[in-house]
């Protein structure tokens, strides 16, 4: 019963993710045409990969008929942040949880689903993550299919607004946490400022957005961890719990 409740909660929280994914994956579907993928191939890729930056990068590589190794390296680098998220998630689950859950949960590690999962109070119930995955993954796959089958079906104003829903969700994860843990506020400000600087200065043009995210995340998080180490009593899950309480007043 408790699993069912967590699953339904995950589904509800996953709806903004589904909407956002649906929009982003339409553009993925349109781009997939450039790699001469069929509609089925594009949908299978979205279903099995679930990575926007990685899939975008793959199209040029596949279109060029490049070696498999090149594809592997590019995916490994672009998706390195999932590795960091996976580390964080390993500390968020109950260590007595059956092992196979780790194998299934790993499938759902994306920026957005991870964000929802880490915002949960206390230990993470895998069923919450499955709930979010069960709405988000179809959204991602069907959007891709729609994108490759039909360009220009939805007016741009609606696509833009659906994109906003995705960012609104990000903000709704980190801002309440910042209110509860004041040290997060300057850290978030520095993150945004540094991100804007990377974007504006042409010196950084050669860095892809996936790499940019990795560099900034590693540098700022490490700096914050050294300068503002979190006291032993408020460990990762309790800090996240503060954020969670803010999410659901």
């Amino acid at each position: 019963m408790i699993h069912r409740q967590m699953y339904l909660k995950g589904m509800r929280d996953g709806i903004p993710v589904m909407l956002g994914y649906f929009v982003v994956s339409i553009t993925i579907g349109i781009a997939a045409r450039g790699a001469n993928l069929t509609a089925l191939q594009a949908a299978v890729m979205s279903l099995t990969n679930l990575t926007s930056a990685g899939q975008f990068a793959s199209f040029a590589i596949i279109a060029a008929g490049a070696p498999y190794l090149e594809l592997m390296v590019s995916q490994a680098v672009i998706n390195l942040r999932y590795c960091l998220m996976s580390c964080a998630l390993s500390q968020k689950v109950d260590q007595r949880m059956p092992f196979y859950h780790r194998l299934f949960m790993a499938c759902g590690i994306t920026d957005e689903i991870f964000g929802l999962a880490i915002g949960q109070k206390g230990k993470l119930d895998p069923w919450y993550m499955y709930g979010a995955m069960s709405v988000a993954i179809p959204g991602w796959t069907l959007g891709t299919l729609l994108g490759i089958l039909s360009t220009g079906l939805l007016p741009p104003a609606i696509l833009n607004a659906m994109n906003m829903a995705l960012y609104g969700m990000f903000i709704a994860i980190f801002m309440p946490a910042a209110r509860d843990n004041p040290i997060l506020l300057p850290i978030i400000a520095v993150s945004m400022g540094a991100s804007a600087v990377f974007q504006m200065l042409p010196v950084f043009d050669f860095i892809s957005s996936g790499i940019k995210i990795i560099i900034l995340t590693l540098a700022i998080s490490l700096g914050a961890a050294v300068l503002f180490p979190i006291a032993e009593k408020e460990t990762a899950e309790e800090t996240a719990a503060d954020g969670k309480e803010a999410l659901r007043p």
């Binding site: 964080a88 804007a196 914050a224």
Partner: peptide, 20 residues
Amino acid sequence: TFRSFLTYVPYVTLAVMTFP
């Protein structure tokens, strides 16, 4: 330090991806 690092990672990543 590593625990603190892992705690900060999600918030920094989300902020970086959101803005600009």
